[in-house]
């Protein structure tokens, strides 16, 4: 199945209801859920992320796009899982202990889902034990978010925890976080914004190129 232009456009422009309607209609017509996801929705989200990185779209459009994507995924995910579709990789993501801000983190999670990753979303106020469990459950990268300079230091604690674990990549982001801070705490990657996150994860997991 080729790209469904209407679905692609509905995700890009954040038409949540439209996305749900098209997905339902297409499924009723017998469309393959994996194809709907892989050929239309994921390319739409990827396109949005790339345009975001080029400063052609901004956070408002990203957020409504991500929300529309989520609406479609809610329908498709169980069907895709049943079909045995293999994700690009598995990552876990969480807002670090002490911090409750999750809108930025949720956007990054959606970008990664939209890029074809399996995302274990640990929510907010996440401590090392929860990240550890997610890694034991198969996460290859640990993505840390913080919105406060006061909670940012916990990123170092997590980075230190995973330092000796070959194969576990720690990637940080959030408004007060800088590349300099990421380097300082020995993180493997730093995502300046949600648009950059997909590329960084792919690079850290050796999927780039």
């Amino acid at each position: 199945m080729a790209k469904n232009d209407a679905l692609f456009k509905a995700v890009s422009t954040g038409q949540r209801k439209e996305v749900e309607d098209i997905v339902q209609t297409e499924l009723a017509k017998g469309a393959n859920p994996v194809e709907l996801l892989m050929d239309s929705m994921i390319p739409a989200m990827r396109d949005l992320g790339e345009r975001f990185s080029r400063n052609e779209v901004y956070v408002p459009q990203m957020l409504i796009g991500a929300r529309a994507m989520q609406a479609g995924l809610n329908i498709l995910e169980p069907l895709v899982a049943k079909a045995g579709h293999k994700p690009l990789g598995t990552i876990c993501i969480g807002t670090v202990k002490g911090d409750l801000h999750d809108i930025g983190k949720n956007l990054v999670a959606m970008m990664l889902k939209g890029a074809g990753f399996k995302v274990i979303d640990l929510g907010v106020n996440v401590d090392i034990a929860k990240f550890e469990k997610a890694v034991n459950d198969g996460a290859q990268a640990v993505l840390l978010s913080a919105l406060l300079t006061t909670t940012m230091p916990y990123m170092k604690a997590v980075a230190d925890h995973f330092k000796a674990r070959a194969g576990v990549k720690v990637i940080v982001g959030g408004a007060p976080v800088t590349q300099g801070y990421a380097d300082e705490i020995g993180a493997h990657g730093y995502a300046e914004d949600a648009g950059a996150s997909v590329g960084i994860v792919e690079k850290c997991l050796g999927l780039a190129g």
């Binding site: 408002p60 957020l63 409504i64 929300r67 409750l100 999750d102 809108i103 949720n106 907010v124």
Partner: peptide, 22 residues
Amino acid sequence: VELNLRPEFESAYIDSMLLPNA
């Protein structure tokens, strides 16, 4: 009330991102 822990907040925030509102 911790807004970030309220389930309505994220959706209200995204709606409010648009002019004037989604």
